[in-house]
Amino acid sequence: MRFQGAQVAAGLMSVLPGAQALLRFSCSQLVVERLDPLVNPGVVGSPHLHQIIGGNAFNATMDPAKLDIPGTATCTTCTFADDFSNYWTAVLFFRARNGTYHRVPQKGNVFFEQAKGGMTVYYTPTLTGGKVTAFKPGFRMIVGDPMERTAAGAAKYRQLTYTCLQNSMTRTGETKNLPPKPCPAGIMANIRFPTCWDGVNLDSPDHASHIAYPTSGTFESGGPCPSTHPVKIPQLFYEVIWDTTAFNDAAADWPTDGSQPFVWSYGDATGYGTHGDYVFGWKGDALQRAMDQNCQNDRCSGLGSQSLQQGNQCTVETTVDEQIDGWLEELPGGMAVTDASGKVIY
């Protein structure tokens, strides 16, 4: 389902007040498995489980010197058919009182309910005018740190948050930690990437040093880029809705001490370690054209599009043979859950 008429205005005001233009579109789930071509290139069975969306060129290695992503991919889960990029995050689990784990399902975002899980992806040009430079072939980046377990440590990632959804349109009350109470319509993870680039490096050893946040304020407030990273890039933003509603009976199912029961696949029960990964794969200059012409939502003149149903059909075969569904004795990969000191909690 596409935005139309009043839905456009209502949707924009609820998610990005003041925005003049943006791409907002759905990407269904491509695959869920333990692969991470940025942090663990070439490893089949990376330490923790990820959910990946985008083009079907995704694989364990994705060497930028050897892989032409839009030239290799034959389909994409995104509704913009020119976007063969890959986007991924960790996976949320529910931990029962008996110590077993169950993967939390995802659901499509508002107006994209027919998507097969996945995410809603945003690319927003500057909100205060001026040129924004689209990502280049070979560009990749990470935001967040799965090792973080404290509010102080997570503070350096300014806009990695959660929304406890009261209904499908809730867009207020963001927190840095996982919500401590049941959320009537699920938990939305909000992952906003830095918006300044050094203008030279398509990647860096930590996949983050070549990008930076504005020196003050945020992208939305028009904060200036630092001199070390002077080039404004689009704000890339993921919304991922985890359908936690099956686990909302706190009296019967949550820990007896009142703590929240959700755990990330990398062993984090706080939420402070949330993170996101990105590998650029738009065809030709499609993304730059979209940024230059101030496109609106999931429609943009000159860009190819496809239906949600078509995107749902794009998949890749899993390469890691393991159980990830049903009730599990441990997190996939045997990942332990740790606290701020690195001590294993369970």
Rank of each mutant, 00 (worst) to 15 (best):
G54L: 05
N56P: 03
A57F: 04
A57N: 01
N59I: 00
T61H: 01
T61M: 05
P64D: 02
L67R: 11
D68L: 06
P70M: 03
T72Q: 09
T72F: 07
T72I: 11
A73R: 08
A73I: 03
T74M: 08
C78V: 02
T79K: 11
T79R: 11
F84Q: 11
F84G: 10
T89P: 04
T89A: 12
T89M: 11
L92D: 04
A96W: 09
N98W: 06
N98C: 00
T100H: 10
T100V: 10
Y101W: 01
R103M: 14
V104G: 07
P105Q: 04
N109E: 14
E113G: 14
E113Q: 15
E113S: 15
A115F: 12
A115P: 09
K116Y: 15
K116Q: 15
M119P: 00
M119Y: 12
V121A: 10
Y122G: 02
Y123C: 01
P125T: 01
T128E: 13
G129K: 03
G130D: 08
K131M: 06
F135G: 00
P137Q: 03
P137D: 02
P137A: 00
P137L: 00
G138E: 04
R140T: 04
I142T: 14
G144S: 11
D145H: 12
E148T: 11
R149I: 00
A152C: 00
G153E: 12
G153R: 07
A154M: 02
A155P: 04
K156F: 06
Y157L: 05
Q159G: 00
Y162G: 08
